[in-house]
């Protein structure tokens, strides 16, 4: 049975895809570091501290997370994988988007011409409900349907 959540569209858009769920803060640099350095065609999470995502492919997925954490180069990493086509297609934040991710997705939109569909403030129940591998559908008004 599907579940519906309503958040704030930070960068609105319509899309659907496979969920990739991090229940802990997503360390953008640590997660993409290896694939960026090695110019990989697919980004596999290299953050050893992230038990949910370590070793999992992130390219083209709908990343579900509380917030991003870590280095202030995080936004630059999001720009880099946007241009390389190895990042997620959408980011769904349970909490308010953090300043590092906000900068990264906005600069990607304006300077790279790649739009991550971004919805935030979906609430803690969203992260409890969504499972990696489930189909997630995002609507322009910030509605997110899981399953």
């Amino acid at each position: 049975m599907s579940q519906t959540f309503k958040g704030r569209p930070v960068l609105p858009g319509n899309c659907s895809g496979e969920a990739l769920v991090s229940r802990q803060g997503f360390n953008t640099l640590a997660s993409f570091q290896k694939s960026v350095i090695l110019h990989s065609k697919k980004a596999v999470c290299s953050d050893q501290d992230n038990k949910d995502l370590y070793g999992k492919e992130m390219t083209g997925k709908i990343l579900c997370l509380p917030q991003t954490i870590g280095s202030t180069t995080g936004g630059l990493v999001l720009q880099t994988v946007a241009e390389a086509g190895t990042g997620p297609k959408a980011m769904l934040f349970a909490e308010h988007i953090d300043s590092l991710a906000a900068a990264g997705v906005i600069l990607s939109d304006i300077w790279v011409g790649f739009r991550y569909v971004v919805v935030d403030q979906l609430g803690p129940d969203f992260l409890t409900a969504v499972r990696t591998g489930q189909t997630v559908t995002i609507q322009e008004d910030g509605t997110v349907v899981v399953g």
Binding site: S71, T72, T73, G74, G75, L76, Q79, D98, S99, L100, A103, G104, I106, L107, W111
Partner: peptide, 28 residues
Amino acid sequence: WSESSAVVYANSVLGARTNRNSAGIDVM
């Protein structure tokens, strides 16, 4: 400012005011 260690020093020890900005938006 960006650079997390500089941001927290500027805010806390110097009493200046900056958010934790990411690379790129700092230049803007």
